[in-house]
Amino acid sequence: MSQTNSATRDRSLVRGAAEAVALIRPGATLMVGGFGLVGAPLTVIEALCESPDARDLTVISNNLGEPGRGLGRLLLEGRVRKAIGSYFTSNPDVVRAHAEGRLEIDLLPQGTLAESIRAGGAGIGGFYTKTGLGTLLGEGCEERVIRGERYLFRESLHADVALVRARVADELGNLVYSKTARNFNPDMATAADLVIAEVDEIVPVGALDPEAIVTPHLFVDHLVLSTTARGAGK
Protein backbone atom coordinates (compact mmCIF):
# COMPACT_ATOMS: atom_id res chain seq x y z
CA MET A 1 0.00 0.00 0.00
CA SER A 2 2.90 2.35 0.69
CA GLN A 3 3.84 4.34 -2.33
CA THR A 4 7.34 4.03 -3.65
CA ASN A 5 8.75 7.26 -2.53
CA SER A 6 12.35 6.94 -3.55
CA ALA A 7 11.66 6.50 -7.24
CA THR A 8 11.55 9.36 -9.71
CA ARG A 9 8.80 11.68 -8.70
CA ASP A 10 6.23 12.59 -11.31
CA ARG A 11 3.82 14.20 -8.92
CA SER A 12 4.05 16.49 -5.94
CA LEU A 13 3.48 14.97 -2.49
CA VAL A 14 1.47 17.99 -1.44
CA ARG A 15 -2.23 17.42 -0.88
CA GLY A 16 -5.10 19.38 0.56
CA ALA A 17 -6.08 18.07 3.99
CA ALA A 18 -9.48 16.83 2.72
CA GLU A 19 -7.86 15.05 -0.23
CA ALA A 20 -5.32 13.36 2.03
CA VAL A 21 -7.82 12.11 4.62
CA ALA A 22 -10.13 10.80 1.88
CA LEU A 23 -7.65 7.90 1.69
CA ILE A 24 -8.75 6.77 5.17
CA ARG A 25 -11.42 4.06 5.01
CA PRO A 26 -14.01 3.06 7.63
CA GLY A 27 -12.54 0.74 10.27
CA ALA A 28 -8.97 1.93 9.63
CA THR A 29 -6.26 1.83 12.30
CA LEU A 30 -4.56 5.21 12.62
CA MET A 31 -1.45 6.34 14.42
CA VAL A 32 -1.67 10.01 15.37
CA GLY A 33 1.36 11.89 16.66
CA GLY A 34 1.38 14.35 19.53
CA PHE A 35 1.76 14.59 23.28
CA GLY A 36 -1.62 16.04 24.15
CA LEU A 37 -2.01 18.73 21.50
CA VAL A 38 1.73 19.42 21.27
CA GLY A 39 2.94 18.03 17.96
CA ALA A 40 -0.53 16.82 16.96
CA PRO A 41 -1.48 17.21 13.26
CA LEU A 42 -4.47 19.46 14.01
CA THR A 43 -5.27 20.51 10.43
CA VAL A 44 -5.45 16.88 9.27
CA ILE A 45 -7.53 15.90 12.33
CA GLU A 46 -9.99 18.72 11.58
CA ALA A 47 -10.32 17.40 8.00
CA LEU A 48 -10.82 13.90 9.40
CA CYS A 49 -13.79 15.16 11.41
CA GLU A 50 -15.37 16.33 8.13
CA SER A 51 -14.66 13.09 6.23
CA PRO A 52 -17.68 10.70 6.27
CA ASP A 53 -15.51 7.62 5.69
CA ALA A 54 -13.40 8.32 8.76
CA ARG A 55 -15.44 6.25 11.21
CA ASP A 56 -15.17 3.12 13.33
CA LEU A 57 -11.52 4.04 13.76
CA THR A 58 -8.88 2.53 16.00
CA VAL A 59 -6.57 5.35 17.09
CA ILE A 60 -3.06 4.71 18.41
CA SER A 61 -1.95 7.90 20.15
CA ASN A 62 -0.55 8.79 23.57
CA ASN A 63 -3.77 10.66 24.46
CA LEU A 64 -7.05 11.50 22.77
CA GLY A 65 -6.46 15.24 22.61
CA GLU A 66 -8.29 17.61 24.90
CA PRO A 67 -12.04 18.18 25.25
CA GLY A 68 -13.32 19.14 21.80
CA ARG A 69 -9.83 19.75 20.45
CA GLY A 70 -7.63 17.58 18.25
CA LEU A 71 -8.49 13.90 18.70
CA GLY A 72 -10.87 15.01 21.45
CA ARG A 73 -13.09 16.45 18.70
CA LEU A 74 -12.84 13.26 16.62
CA LEU A 75 -14.03 11.35 19.69
CA LEU A 76 -16.98 13.72 20.22
CA GLU A 77 -17.91 13.23 16.55
CA GLY A 78 -18.31 9.53 17.36
CA ARG A 79 -15.60 8.36 14.97
CA VAL A 80 -13.33 6.50 17.38
CA ARG A 81 -14.18 2.89 18.29
CA LYS A 82 -10.98 2.01 20.10
CA ALA A 83 -8.02 3.94 21.49
CA ILE A 84 -4.55 2.53 22.23
CA GLY A 85 -2.38 4.87 24.29
CA SER A 86 -0.89 5.64 27.70
CA TYR A 87 -2.74 8.55 29.27
CA PHE A 88 -6.45 9.17 28.72
CA THR A 89 -7.47 10.62 32.08
CA SER A 90 -6.59 14.20 31.10
CA ASN A 91 -9.63 14.31 28.78
CA PRO A 92 -12.89 13.77 30.73
CA ASP A 93 -14.75 13.07 27.46
CA VAL A 94 -12.60 9.95 27.04
CA VAL A 95 -13.38 8.76 30.56
CA ARG A 96 -17.11 9.30 29.90
CA ALA A 97 -17.10 7.56 26.50
CA HIS A 98 -15.35 4.58 28.06
CA ALA A 99 -17.76 4.46 31.01
CA GLU A 100 -20.72 4.53 28.63
CA GLY A 101 -19.30 1.67 26.58
CA ARG A 102 -18.78 3.79 23.47
CA LEU A 103 -15.00 3.54 23.50
CA GLU A 104 -12.73 0.55 23.96
CA ILE A 105 -9.37 1.41 25.54
CA ASP A 106 -6.11 -0.50 25.48
CA LEU A 107 -3.77 1.12 27.99
CA LEU A 108 -0.01 0.70 27.63
CA PRO A 109 2.87 2.16 29.63
CA GLN A 110 4.18 5.11 27.64
CA GLY A 111 7.56 3.53 26.97
CA THR A 112 5.93 0.29 25.87
CA LEU A 113 3.67 2.27 23.52
CA ALA A 114 6.65 4.10 22.00
CA GLU A 115 8.72 0.94 21.63
CA SER A 116 5.77 -0.99 20.14
CA ILE A 117 5.52 1.67 17.45
CA ARG A 118 9.29 1.83 16.88
CA ALA A 119 9.43 -1.96 16.61
CA GLY A 120 6.45 -2.07 14.26
CA GLY A 121 8.20 0.36 11.95
CA ALA A 122 11.43 -1.59 12.08
CA GLY A 123 9.96 -4.93 11.07
CA ILE A 124 10.14 -6.38 14.58
CA GLY A 125 7.23 -8.57 15.68
CA GLY A 126 7.59 -7.91 19.39
CA PHE A 127 10.03 -7.37 22.25
CA TYR A 128 10.61 -8.11 25.94
CA THR A 129 10.43 -5.37 28.58
CA LYS A 130 10.47 -5.27 32.38
CA THR A 131 7.94 -2.43 32.39
CA GLY A 132 4.55 -3.56 33.66
CA LEU A 133 5.81 -6.76 35.27
CA GLY A 134 3.71 -7.70 38.29
CA THR A 135 1.12 -4.99 37.57
CA LEU A 136 -2.42 -4.88 36.18
CA LEU A 137 -0.99 -3.88 32.79
CA GLY A 138 1.23 -6.95 32.65
CA GLU A 139 -1.57 -9.45 33.26
CA GLY A 140 -1.83 -12.04 30.50
CA CYS A 141 1.55 -11.20 28.96
CA GLU A 142 3.96 -14.01 28.19
CA GLU A 143 7.05 -13.94 30.44
CA ARG A 144 10.65 -14.89 29.86
CA VAL A 145 13.76 -14.82 32.06
CA ILE A 146 16.69 -13.07 30.37
CA ARG A 147 20.06 -12.81 32.17
CA GLY A 148 18.31 -13.78 35.38
CA GLU A 149 15.57 -11.14 35.21
CA ARG A 150 11.89 -11.48 34.36
CA TYR A 151 10.60 -9.71 31.25
CA LEU A 152 7.18 -9.37 29.59
CA PHE A 153 6.57 -9.95 25.90
CA ARG A 154 4.86 -7.17 23.96
CA GLU A 155 3.76 -7.26 20.36
CA SER A 156 4.71 -4.40 18.10
CA LEU A 157 2.11 -2.08 16.60
CA HIS A 158 1.41 -1.23 12.99
CA ALA A 159 -1.24 1.01 11.42
CA ASP A 160 -2.96 1.52 8.10
CA VAL A 161 -2.29 5.24 8.19
CA ALA A 162 -0.04 7.49 10.31
CA LEU A 163 -0.87 11.18 10.73
CA VAL A 164 2.22 13.04 11.88
CA ARG A 165 3.27 16.64 12.47
CA ALA A 166 6.62 18.16 11.61
CA ARG A 167 7.89 21.73 11.34
CA VAL A 168 9.29 21.62 7.84
CA ALA A 169 9.46 19.20 4.92
CA ASP A 170 11.34 19.35 1.67
CA GLU A 171 9.56 18.45 -1.57
CA LEU A 172 10.76 14.86 -1.28
CA GLY A 173 9.14 14.48 2.14
CA ASN A 174 12.22 14.67 4.37
CA LEU A 175 11.04 15.91 7.77
CA VAL A 176 12.50 18.13 10.49
CA TYR A 177 10.61 18.52 13.77
CA SER A 178 10.24 21.24 16.36
CA LYS A 179 11.43 20.78 19.94
CA THR A 180 9.13 18.61 22.09
CA ALA A 181 6.54 18.59 19.28
CA ARG A 182 8.69 15.74 17.91
CA ASN A 183 7.55 13.15 20.53
CA PHE A 184 5.83 10.14 18.89
CA ASN A 185 5.87 11.57 15.35
CA PRO A 186 9.15 10.13 13.98
CA ASP A 187 8.32 6.65 15.31
CA MET A 188 4.80 6.73 13.88
CA ALA A 189 6.11 7.90 10.50
CA THR A 190 7.85 4.51 10.20
CA ALA A 191 5.01 2.26 11.34
CA ALA A 192 2.10 2.67 8.90
CA ASP A 193 1.30 1.68 5.33
CA LEU A 194 0.48 5.27 4.43
CA VAL A 195 2.03 8.33 6.07
CA ILE A 196 0.51 11.81 5.91
CA ALA A 197 2.73 14.54 7.35
CA GLU A 198 1.34 17.94 8.30
CA VAL A 199 4.00 20.66 8.15
CA ASP A 200 4.30 24.42 8.56
CA GLU A 201 6.55 24.85 5.58
CA ILE A 202 7.70 23.01 2.45
CA VAL A 203 11.13 23.89 1.07
CA PRO A 204 12.94 22.88 -2.13
CA VAL A 205 15.02 19.72 -2.24
CA GLY A 206 18.50 20.50 -0.98
CA ALA A 207 17.39 23.25 1.39
CA LEU A 208 17.47 20.98 4.46
CA ASP A 209 20.74 20.03 6.12
CA PRO A 210 21.00 16.24 5.66
CA GLU A 211 22.46 16.01 9.19
CA ALA A 212 19.28 17.60 10.58
CA ILE A 213 16.72 15.40 8.84
CA VAL A 214 15.02 13.17 11.42
CA THR A 215 12.58 11.33 9.13
CA PRO A 216 14.06 10.44 5.73
CA HIS A 217 11.63 10.89 2.84
CA LEU A 218 11.13 7.21 2.04
CA PHE A 219 8.73 7.00 5.00
CA VAL A 220 6.47 9.87 3.88
CA ASP A 221 3.69 9.59 1.29
CA HIS A 222 1.79 12.87 1.48
CA LEU A 223 2.40 16.39 2.78
CA VAL A 224 -0.32 18.70 4.04
CA LEU A 225 0.34 22.36 4.87
CA SER A 226 -0.85 23.23 8.35
CA THR A 227 -3.46 25.97 8.67
CA THR A 228 -4.08 25.68 12.41
CA ALA A 229 -2.19 27.24 15.27
CA ARG A 230 0.21 24.87 16.94
CA GLY A 231 -1.26 22.99 19.86
CA ALA A 232 0.02 24.50 23.05
CA GLY A 233 0.27 22.88 26.45
CA LYS A 234 -2.46 23.14 29.00
Binding site: S86, Y87, T89, H98, I105, L107, G132
Partner: peptide, 13 residues
Amino acid sequence: PVLGVGGAMDLLV
Protein backbone atom coordinates in the same frame (compact mmCIF):
# COMPACT_ATOMS: atom_id res chain seq x y z
CA PRO B 1 -11.33 2.21 35.38
CA VAL B 2 -7.65 2.20 34.58
CA LEU B 3 -7.25 4.84 31.88
CA GLY B 4 -3.91 6.53 32.45
CA VAL B 5 -0.40 5.39 33.32
CA GLY B 6 1.99 7.59 31.31
CA GLY B 7 5.67 6.98 32.00
CA ALA B 8 5.41 5.99 35.68
CA MET B 9 6.03 2.26 35.21
CA ASP B 10 8.98 2.80 32.85
CA LEU B 11 10.63 5.30 35.21
CA LEU B 12 10.21 3.00 38.17
CA VAL B 13 11.65 0.03 36.31
